[in-house]
Amino acid sequence: MKFRLLLLVIICCAVAGIAPAVQMSGEDIIRKVDSNLTFDSAQFEAKMLIYVGDEVREKRMISYAEGADKSFSEFTYPARDKGVKYLKLGDQMWMYLPSVEKSIKIAGHMLRQSMMGSDYSYEDALESRKLLDKYSISLAGEKEGNYVLDLTAKVKDVTYYKRKVWVDKTTFIPMRGELYAKSGKLLKVSTTEKVEEFGGRFYPTKSVLRNLLRKNSRTEFIITSAKFNVPIPSGTFTERNLTR
């Protein structure tokens, strides 16, 4: 009995002593988030609900992804956007427009424009996994089961000079993000509203982004079905696939 109590005390002490040592740094947390969200391969069916004022526009798409750098999406709904395809390779992006049977590279000024009329910009879709390269990250604290991280740009050419990210301590899913301009003005707010478990790993299936520069606007991104680590046909992530 005495021995057990001693053991408990030792364990407690050990935990208390070790805990600060395993305290993760901000960068560790972001790394963990990245690895958590990155799969060898993934296939999604998703829809975007774009709310502007009283209006809602729905867009549906099928997406394929490999690692963090490659993705391919094709819109299936509405009729107007059917057949519009996006290809992302690293930090480059192409778009295919079926109405003119042409693909265009999205670069320069276009990157900051709205993607399919949503609150997301093309840049938002591209740079999400480059945080470690572009920002110095510090752990600002913990709040309601989340790590709160402060990100400040260390390179010049970024749209959002500062970010605040809330990361769930158990699932390592970013639950809330705030994007700021250099002036300190809050530009966009993203929230994760639903997280689902897929084979022991967690993935956000409903997120909402509000672009505060647009009046009364928000975009819900909802994954309606997801398959992870499934084989993806070779040639999916090529420019040729855009025009096919």
Binding site: L97, S99, V100, K102, M110, Q113, M116, G117, S118
Partner: peptide, 16 residues
Amino acid sequence: LTVVTQTAYGSITAMN
């Protein structure tokens, strides 16, 4: 001439 522009709702759109 392929004209590429944005729709009233912000999507990229094009017409030959």
